[in-house]
């Protein structure tokens, strides 16, 4: 199996020759920027640089996938949010303190939405990667879910308060914003993406599992039906209280956080959805060494997790040595478990 075949098979929960190493969010680091001569913030806005930096996860780290969308700001930028582009050592962010919407009727998806330079950058980067790597490695795109877009466009606090004060209004906002998710997702599929990460930050640290069921479960089922490509849902934090719902959405995989025990999570989702994750970023990949990284990889493999990788976008100062340890540990685990 090559890397692409391995990732796609794992996303279908079919047998693989070894567990794929996957980065559904981002593994861009300062060291990788130096190696590829492609730096933030330009690597978020120039398709050539974006593709070059993204490819290092395959060429330098030995991961089985490439994810060119390092941040979560593209769609919001195209909708009109102000973006703080930052420098080499920081992530671009949406200025959520300056929201662009207050009411559902404010939501307007521009007719030329997909022509926005920040979306074109992603689409062109996917085309470049597809041309460069053909079918040897899985190219994963990213389309933001409506809950995350709600934070960006309404501001986190106003959006969360709206969700408590007025359920109908909140659902109307989500319903209108979901078209952003669909449009950008389909465009990336057309550009050549093999799978899409769909971050929708109804995180365990912010809202309950009941909230997920109330506001997002049906919408996520709709995404799985309308986007004919494997979808990898990403939600941070402790999420075991909603994994049962998530497993029934029809999405291919759930990218889960280190706050969830791998064995407990696998027991909840059973064989209804693949799990991707969940190496801890701040305490392990950033702060500790290869030995601790290896231990977390083994914990995931012992539990039967389908694709292994960091829990979320990693701190930019994470060392290459720690990241390279993930595929090394996966290979060693499989050697030790040859039947």
């Amino acid at each position: 199996m090559n890397s692409r075949e391995r990732v796609l098979a794992a996303l279908r929960r079919e047998p693989v020759d070894r567990t794929p190493v996957c980065n559904p969010t981002s593994v861009a680091t300062v060291e990788l920027m130096d190696l590829s001569d492609s730096y933030f913030p330009d690597a978020n806005r120039d398709p050539e640089r974006m593709a070059r930096l993204a490819a290092t996860s395959y060429t330098e780290l030995g991961f089985d996938s490439i994810m060119p969308v390092f941040s979560i700001i593209q769609e919001s930028s195209a909708l009109g949010c102000k973006i703080q582009w930052e420098q080499k050592d920081n992530w671009p962010t949406v200025r959520m303190r300056e929201p662009i919407y207050t009411e559902p009727d404010d939501i307007r998806i521009p007719p030329d939405f997909l022509q926005h330079p920040d979306l074109q950058c992603v689409l062109n980067a996917i085309r470049i990667l597809r041309k460069e790597y053909g079918n040897e490695v899985a190219i994963i795109g990213k389309t933001m879910g409506p809950w995350s877009l709600g934070y960006h466009c309404f501001g986190v606090e106003p959006f969360l308060l709206m969700s408590l004060d007025d359920e109908g209004k909140t659902k109307l906002c989500l319903d209108r914003l979901k078209e952003v998710t669909i449009q950008f997702g389909l465009a990336q599929l057309e550009a050549g993406a093999d799978a899409l990460t769909l971050p929708d930050h109804a995180t365990g640290d912010l809202v309950s599992g009941e909230y997920y069921a109330r506001y997002l479960r049906d919408m996520h089922i709709e995404f799985a039906q309308r986007l004919p490509i494997p979808l990898i849902l990403h939600i941070c934090g402790r999420t075991v209280d909603r994994m049962g719902y998530i497993a029934e959405t029809g999405m291919a995989a759930f990218h889960y956080d280190s706050k969830n025990d791998p064995a407990e999570s696998m027991a909840i989702v059973k064989d209804r959805i693949a799990l991707v994750g969940n190496i801890n970023n701040p305490e392990t990949l950033f702060s500790k060494g290869p030995e601790e990284v290896r231990r977390e990889v083994y914990r995931n493999l012992d539990a039967g997790v389908n694709l292994v990788g960091p829990e979320c976008a990693i701190p930019l100062q994470t060392t290459i040595e720690n990241l390279k340890e993930i595929p090394l540990a996966v290979r060693d685990w499989h050697k030790e478990h040859v039947q």
Partner: peptide
């Protein structure tokens, strides 16, 4: 203790 989440806390804070 996860009996309530951030929206409810924000409402109390308000």
């Amino acid at each position: 203790e996860n009996f309530i989440f951030v929206p409810e806390v924000l409402s109390c804070a308000r």
